[in-house]
Structure formats: C-alpha cells, structure tokens
C-alpha cells in the first residue's frame, strides 16, 4: 500500500451469535433473511450484518443507532474484543485477525485507546494508575509512566487529582479520566463507546466541546458511538446510521439531515434542528457591500465564511451587522434581517 493505509478499515464484517453461526452466515449470504427468520430457523442472533467502512486519518466517524442496533458490538471488532464471524479489520493496513495474543495486546495498548459509556475506571487504582494502566502492562518504567499519565491528565484539565481514587470524582471528571486513559499512550485511533451518554446535559455539552477540540488538535482518528443523532452531527465528520446490525446510511452530517436515505433515517432527522449548519456564507447578502447593509457592517471586525451560527448571532447582536471576508476579500454582509430570514426558513 502506498503509505496511505487507512487508520481503520473494516470489510464485510459479520457477527452472528449462536451455535449455528456458520450456517446462518451461509444462508444470509445467499438470500436476505430478517432477524426474526434467523432466530426462528437457526436460534441465532445477528449482531453485525455485512458492514464495511473506512476511517481516514484525523477523521471522526460517528456510528449512530439505538440500543440493540449492534453499534457497540461493531466497535468492539475494531480492537478485537469481539471476534467477527467473518470479515476483516485492518488497523494502519495491518490485518488484526492475523495477530497473535502478544501482538494484539501490543496493538491495544499502543495504537488504540478506548472510552466506555460507564467509564469503567478501576476503583482500587488511583487516577494516575488508572491512566497509566496501558503503559504498565507494556512494561514501561515507573517514572515514564508517571510522566505520561500526568501529561494526559493535564490535557483533560485534571492535574492535581492524580493520587485520588475514581469514586472521589464527579461523573464528568471520571469520564475525563477515561479520556485521559485513552490518550495516555498517544494512540492513533480512539474508540468512543457512548462516552457522554451517562452524563447530565450540561456536562455532556462541555465534554463534547473539549473532546472535539482535543481530537482535532491531536489529529486522532476517532470512531464515536452514540444513540443521539444531535451528538453524532456535532461530533462527526461523517455519520453512519445503524439499524439491525447494518448501516442504513453513511454520509456527512448535512447529507444525512437534508437527504435521509430511508424512512428510518428520516424519522430521526425530523427532530433535529438544521440550524447547526448555517454559516456566514449561507446567510450573507450580496456579492459586495452596498447601502445600508454595508454601512451596518462597516464599524466592526469581519468574520470568515465558515463562522457558525452561534458566533454570528453574538457578533450581529453586538455590532448590528457584520462583513464576511476571506483572505481580505469581502464576500458579503450579514444583516439582522438576513439572519432572521435564514433561521425562519430552517425552522420550516
């Protein structure tokens, strides 16, 4: 491969639970069978059904589905906590089903970090020892371990808590420890298994923001599982909607929202506000500034075309209007009227 091996690549993954796994696999590759048919005829449960995807470097790939859709099962194939019934998983171009026990442990400790829905911090270990576990099992020396753990804890702003125990921390802090643990060995790939679902809304939003920032800064490849479409849209560069073990639709958040592929996706999309995708470029008026609008924008700082709605609202509220510029060239002007009209149109 020409140096451009995908950080994560899954090909035709199947996972069938039950004794007659092979038979079901053969039957389902011949003809489509529904979940109920498989259960009746073979007494087996289909977990993952022919899923293929790739995640590029620095990309956040969100898998959204309800409970029982197979998303957590799918995620656990990526670090082989679950063995696929058939199919292939490659990490940085390496087929991980060929790895022996030692190789797999090395891969998990060094190349893949994982964050769990219920934190899964070890209650008998200090925060530092929790974070350093992956390094400890690799035989990294005490001093180096300590440094790496403290560095990771600093990233999630938990310095000063190293010697405490998990139950002395709040839920949000515990999940930041979980994140630090995943980051400690500086892996390329992060697996996030509904990391923020168990937190209350305010803290969830705060952590989503922190996480998105960290992932971007550190250029991590992220697989992010969630049951919340809004979260998927906010966090993911691409989103896959999963139902009954297979992907229903994969695309950029905007595509999912504006062009849902099936009724199932459409049902989810209904409740989600499109306002997230309003940017300065979509709201602004005119190729060049004229008249009143130009005057209104004149007395403040300009913004870039990708400025999101929230920021735009603040700026417009403060200075009555704003110019949109790129590389010093004026693209247009956002007026209060244009802003309101755009929002009105999206609310529908």
């Amino acid at each position: 491969m020409a140096g451009a091996a995908m950080p994560v690549r899954c090909r035709n993954l199947w996972k069938i639970y039950g004794e007659r796994e092979r038979e079901v696999l053969a039957a389902m590759q011949r003809a489509t069978l529904s979940k109920d048919e498989v259960r009746e005829r073979f007494d087996c449960v289909v977990g993952v059904q022919d899923v293929s995807f790739e995640v590029g470097e620095g990309e956040t790939f969100c898998i959204m589905g309800l409970s029982g859709s197979g998303k957590s099962t799918l995620l656990r194939h990526v670090n082989r906590l679950i063995e696929p019934s058939s199919g292939q998983v490659e990490i940085q171009g390496q087929d991980i089903s060929r790895l022996g026990a030692r190789g797999l442990e090395k891969l998990r400790a060094e190349a893949i970090g994982m964050v769990f829905q219920h934190m899964a911090l070890w209650p008998h270990r200090t925060i530092r020892d929790n974070v350093a576990f992956g390094l400890e099992v690799r035989g990294v020396g005490r001093r180096q371990r300590r440094e790496a753990a403290d560095r990771a804890l600093e990233l999630v702003r938990l310095d000063g808590w190293e010697d405490r125990y998990p139950d002395e921390l709040s839920g949000g802090m515990q999940q930041r420890v979980g994140l630090a643990r995943a980051l400690a060995a500086d892996p390329d790939v992060l697996l996030m298994d509904e990391p923020f679902s168990a937190l209350d809304p305010l803290i969830r939003r705060e952590l989503q923001g922190q996480f998105a920032e960290l992932a971007r800064e550190m250029n991590k490849t992220v697989l992010f599982i969630t049951h919340d479409l809004e979260e998927a849209i906010q966090v993911g560069h691409r989103v896959a909607i999963m139902n009954e073990g297979s992907f229903v639709q994969v695309g950029r958040p905007e595509e999912i929202l504006t062009r849902p592929a099936t009724d199932y996706v459409a049902k989810f999309v209904q409740g989600v506000s499109h306002l997230h995708f309003l940017t300065a470029a979509k709201v602004m008026e005119g190729g060049d500034a004229r008249g009143e609008a130009g005057a209104a924008a004149g007395d403040g700082a300009a913004v870039g075309p990708d400025t999101p709605l929230v920021e735009l609202l603040d700026t417009v509220a403060a200075q009555g209007g704003v110019a949109v510029e790129e590389d010093g060239r004026r693209l247009g002007v956002v007026t209060p009227q244009a802003l309101l009209a755009a929002i009105r149109a999206r609310i529908g």
Binding site: N79, L81, A101, E105, K106, L107, R108, A109, E110, I112, G113, M114, F116, H118, A120, L121, W122, P123, F133, G134, V137, R138, R181, L191
Partner: peptide, 13 residues
C-alpha cells in the same frame, strides 16, 4: 464485566 473488558481493551494479558 466492564472493568475486565476495559483491562483487555488497554492491552492487559
């Protein structure tokens, strides 16, 4: 179970 799973996920033997 999740505590054991987490230990596997971080490369424990």
């Amino acid at each position: 179970g999740d505590l054991v799973e987490a230990a596997y996920a971080f490369g424990g033997s």
